[in-house]
């Protein structure tokens, strides 16, 4: 059922605007991939290219071994869920879901009873039984989203594409739907690509995350990969908060000013560099080696964690540190912090 999707060296330009530059991406059958990026990064364009709603200027998209260029939209068998659902408001829920089946050429069209049966099954699948006769206007946002998904699944798609699937929903419903979608995917096993600008959503849901920036693919990898080993400063900053320390690398050590702050660097990249450190990769220590002295200037709560802001001599921005224990220093206290994990990017 599900096929591999191969994206080969895609270029796409809208007049003066270069939407995609030489993007290549392999998607395995049954994989759940997130296209992540800020608005204007080209992620939606890439999704629409896979769907066939846009034509590439260069490069090609393969489903399995088939070049999709010559396939009609119908033959591509794409299940597409639009950000604003794009439900047909003059049709009931059942008519919406049955639309794809009823649009098939007469020879391939299932009979009425079969269509009714499938609509029922799909409504069960998306957990909306008994809503067949409602109109889209009579549904909540989350329900509409699930109807849109059922409609997309009805045509037994080769690939499922979701454009900001939770973009228009409340925070609470988003979280519920996320878990539900993950679960649905593991049951149905469609090759699925979804677009999002929410890194948390991408990391939580996807098997692999593809991060786009200004039309370029910056990095592809598992959530752990991209989060812990960002390939570029952009990926690092986009995926989560990070302190940026201007350092100089000599040998395997990084120096802030003339003080060594991190050792054991494996890449051989001597010279000036930016050291990116996530707030939870900083901790208070007592010992002196490789630690940074500073003063606690601010304590705040950020959801589950507490955050300390530490002023360090020679840095214009305070360091953000997430406290892992309930024991917190007082404001004004002199402390030493140590970097437990960091990524260095040469700045020269």
């Amino acid at each position: 059922m599900s096929v591999a999707v191969t994206i080969e060296a895609i270029d796409k330009r809208f007049l003066a605007f270069q939407a995609l530059r030489n993007v290549s991406l392999d998607i395995q059958p049954g994989e759940l991939v997130a296209l992540l990026g800020p608005s204007g990064s080209g992620k939606t364009t890439l999704l629409r290219l896979i769907a066939g709603l846009e034509q590439a200027d260069a490069g090609r998209v393969l489903f399995g071994d088939d070049d999709t260029r010559d396939l009609s939209l119908r033959d591509r068998r794409i299940g597409f869920v639009f950000q604003h659902y794009a439900l047909f408001k003059t049709m009931t829920v059942a008519e919406n879901i049955a639309f794809g089946l009823r649009s098939r050429p007469r020879a391939e069209r299932p009979d009425g009873a079969e269509i009714t049966r499938r609509v029922k099954a799909l409504l069960e699948l998306v957990q909306l039984p008994d809503l067949e006769r409602r109109y889209p206007s009579q549904l909540s946002g989350g329900q509409r989203q699930r109807v849109a998904l059922a409609r997309a699944l009805a045509i037994e798609p080769q690939v499922l594409l979701l454009d900001e699937p939770f973009g228009a929903l409340d925070a609470k419903i988003r979280k519920d739907l996320r878990a539900w979608l993950r679960d649905l995917h593991s049951r149905t096993g469609h090759t699925t690509v979804f677009v999002t600008h929410d890194q948390e959503e991408a990391l939580e849901l996807a098997d692999r995350v593809a991060i786009l920036h200004e039309g370029k693919l910056e990095q592809v990898g598992t959530p752990d990969d991209v989060y812990d080993h960002p390939a570029t400063p952009f990926v690092c900053e986009f995926l989560g908060e990070a302190n940026r320390l201007p350092v100089k690398i000599v040998g395997s050590q990084a120096f802030l000013g003339d003080r060594p702050v991190l050792g054991g660097l494996t890449q051989n990249q001597s010279g000036p560099a930016a050291l990116y450190v996530r707030p939870h990769h900083l901790k208070f220590v007592d010992e002196t080696p490789l630690s940074i002295p500073g003063v606690v200037e601010q304590l705040r709560r950020t959801g589950a964690l507490r955050r300390a802001e530490i002023a360090v001599a020679g840095l214009t921005k305070r360091l953000d540190l997430d406290l892992t224990s309930q024991v917190a220093p007082a404001i004004g206290e002199r402390v030493r912090v140590k970097i437990t994990h960091a990524t260095a990017f040469a700045t020269a």
Binding site: A51, G52, L53, L73, R74, R76, I78, G79, F80, F82, H84, A86, L87, F88, M91, F99, G100, S103, R104, R151, A152, A154, I155
Partner: peptide, 19 residues
């Protein structure tokens, strides 16, 4: 959106316009 959705679901242009 709704026109693209209909086309992706396999509807012909005429069917899309009229339904």
């Amino acid at each position: 959106d709704i026109e693209e959705a209909a086309a992706l679901l396999g509807a012909s242009r005429l069917r899309t316009i009229f339904t």
